[in-house]
Design a protein around this nucleic acid. Structure first.
Length: 554
RNA sequence: UGGGUCGUCGCCAAGCGGUAAGGCACGGGGUUUUGAUCUCCGCAUACCAAGGUUCGAAUCCUUGCGACCCAGCCA
């Protein structure tokens, strides 16, 4: 992450931070944190937050911690912890310090004792259902729990016994004593500790009471001396509680919570619960399925970290909820891949072409550029011979208007090779074209024929030299822009989100393909070797994104 | 008359009282041995609406309208 050549676009958080720096609000310090709960894999929406938090720190010579918000052991696991660390690093960021909310359990408990001692928290014996009933509604004030005025000594005793494991789950809860009539429901004596007899992926069985998010997050931020606590809009209503907790306690600092709109990307979902469902119900093949908007999925699809970072910068940062079109992400992916992917030829749905006037058994090793705009990326050798394979789509007996490919009696350029003319068509009993016969113009290698214009260029591979490969074409996972708005988002799954082509033939140079290299299959799209299935056995390629297609068909 | 937040081009988004940046998408021209890339041009008399303040308003005020979030012992 070094790019500081172009001026960074303005956004309200950059402005706040710049202003704080000018007024020396935090002695020139900028400290952020990325606080995921390890209850699922990171997705493109998290990328926005990661780029924001790490980005602000980097831009201002500050720090950014990775902090796991691990206060609900029921949903959390080490698998998620590991995947999150891997994904953050893959995106290109390094955390200043690795922390866990669970690191603070003891301090959090001590602070809670303080609240109890000062009459600012009480142990409630109401059941979850009763608490809900007592909470009131959006338009009516709540009413106070009978336990709200329990003597401090009794609260202290009960809370200590909660920790000691003397009670059952749900029997008691520790609540902040704020205001049951507050128009902000979050302030109506929120629960701050509950009893959970659950093994914690990190603290094991050391605790049977766990602090709630609202209570934990602000204190964790304060303990880490975070200056700007950036979170999404839905926490806006929680800010008064964030501030209340810190106002009551003598914490090392009082960070400023600032909310921004989360990413909403068309034709996908970023709800961890729903992504989890797709995985567990096997609508996709795991968290890293290339159709998933997870970082693991995007990575496996061949999307680069740079493209994602660029995307996160381009979409802007505001408090408006907005929907980003998929085209923006695709543009960012293509921009990076266009510059860096090596060009190769691959025929996805082959059609046999015999070049009748080409000598039997002759093979020419043609030198072809790896990148038309970047000669420094070198050349490779592509064998040419009498029988080649072209794309079925690149030949037509009944071409649509403005068709620029191969048709009977017309010519087409074979990329990096000769100009050929289609002389005849061979069909099977069903009337399907199974082979075509062409003749080549020996004078057209590396130069245009004289006196005529060849309208199209198509890609090809030599039948005898090509390698068999499987190619997986990924399309958008959903058929509607906002699957979340459907009665059942599963109904909007695109049945054609994955098309597997098994009869593909790719040029011989791909025998050396690696999973780190990105390729452009000329004229068809950007691909990468599948990191799971493409390394042992045969070649398996994933389509990262198609090439932009400017051909307006009538 | 519950609270909070937000309304600038099809989608994002600058703008912070001095007369509507930019990107994506889209349309058109040029280059091209990828219908790619690259490149040039076009694309809001207009800022949710209506009033008001002002020499001057997307920016300030008032009143409406619309959208989103909140009633987990989730985060």
């Amino acid at each position: 992450m070094s790019t500081n050549d172009t001026p960074l676009p303005a956004n309200f958080i950059r402005q706040i931070i710049a202003n704080d720096l000018n007024t020396n609000k935090h002695n020139g310090r900028v400290a952020t944190r990325f606080p995921p709960e390890p209850n699922g894999y990171l997705h493109i929406g998290h990328a926005k937050s990661i780029c924001l938090n790490f980005g602000m720190a980097l831009e201002n010579n500050g720090t950014c911690n990775l902090r796991f918000d691990d206060t609900n052991p029921e949903k959390e696991s080490d698998e998620y912890v590991q995947s999150i660390m891997r994904d953050v690093q893959w995106l290109g960021f390094s955390w200043s310090e690795l922390r866990h909310a669970s690191d603070y359990f003891e301090q959090l408990y001590d602070y809670a004792i303080q609240l109890v001692e000062r009459g600012l928290a009480y142990v409630d014996s109401l059941s979850a259902e009763e608490i809900r009933a007592y909470r009131g509604t959006l338009t009516e004030a709540g009413k106070e729990s009978p336990d709200r005025n329990r003597p401090i000594a009794e609260n202290l005793n009960l809370f200590r016994r909660m920790r000691a494991g003397e009670f059952d789950e749900g029997q008691y809860v520790l609540r902040a004593k704020i205001d049951m009539a507050s128009p902000n429901i979050n302030m109506r004596d929120p629960a701050i500790y509950r009893i959970r007899r659950v093994h914690h992926q990190r603290t094991g069985d050391a605790w049977c009471i766990y602090p709630m998010y609202d209570y934990t997050h602000c204190i964790s931020d304060a303990l880490e001396n975070i200056t700007h606590s950036l979170c999404t809009l839905e926490f806006e209503d929680h800010r008064p509680l964030y501030d209340w907790v810190l106002d009551q306690l003598q914490t090392p600092s009082h960070p400023q919570q600032i909310e921004f709109a989360r990413l909403q990307l068309e034709y996908t979902i970023v709800s961890k619960r729903k992504l989890n469902l797709l995985v567990t119900e096997k609508h996709v093949n795991g968290w890293d399925d290339p159709r998933m908007p997870t970082l693991a999925g995007l990575r496996r699809a061949g999307v680069t970290p740079k493209a994602i970072r660029d995307f996160c910068e381009r979409i802007g940062l505001t408090k408006q909820n907005s929907w980003i079109e998929m085209g923006v992400l695709e543009y960012c992916i293509r921009e990076d891949l266009n510059e860096n992917a090596l060009r190769v030829m691959a025929v996805l749905e082959p059609l046999r072409v015999v070049i009748t006037n080409y000598p039997d058994g002759q093979v020419e090793n043609l030198e072809v550029s790896n990148h038309p705009q970047r000669p420094e990326l070198g050349k490779r050798t592509v064998p040419f011979s009498k029988v080649i394979l072209i794309e079925q789509d690149d030949f037509s007996e009944n071409p649509p208007p403005k068709y620029k490919r191969l048709v009977v009696s017309e010519e087409v350029r074979l990329r990096g090779s000769y100009v050929i003319r289609c002389d005849s068509v061979i069909k099977n009993e069903a009337g399907e074209v199974i082979e075509i016969h062409c003749s080549y113009d020996p004078g057209t290698l590396g130069k245009n024929p004289e006196g005529r214009k060849v309208k199209g260029v198509i890609h090809w591979v030599s039948e005898a030299h090509a390698l068999p490969a499987e190619v997986r074409l990924y399309n958008r996972l959903f058929t509607v822009p906002q699957p979340d708005n459907e009665a059942n988002f599963l109904d909007a799954l695109n049945p054609h989100s994955l098309e597997t082509l098994t009869a593909c033939r790719v040029e011989a140079s791909l025998a050396q393909a690696t999973t780190v290299q990105r390729y452009q299959f000329e004229r068809t799209g950007y691909f990468c070797l599948d990191a799971v299935d493409g390394i042992n056995g045969g070649l398996v390629f994933n389509r990262t994104v198609t090439l932009r297609d400017g051909w307006v068909k009538d």
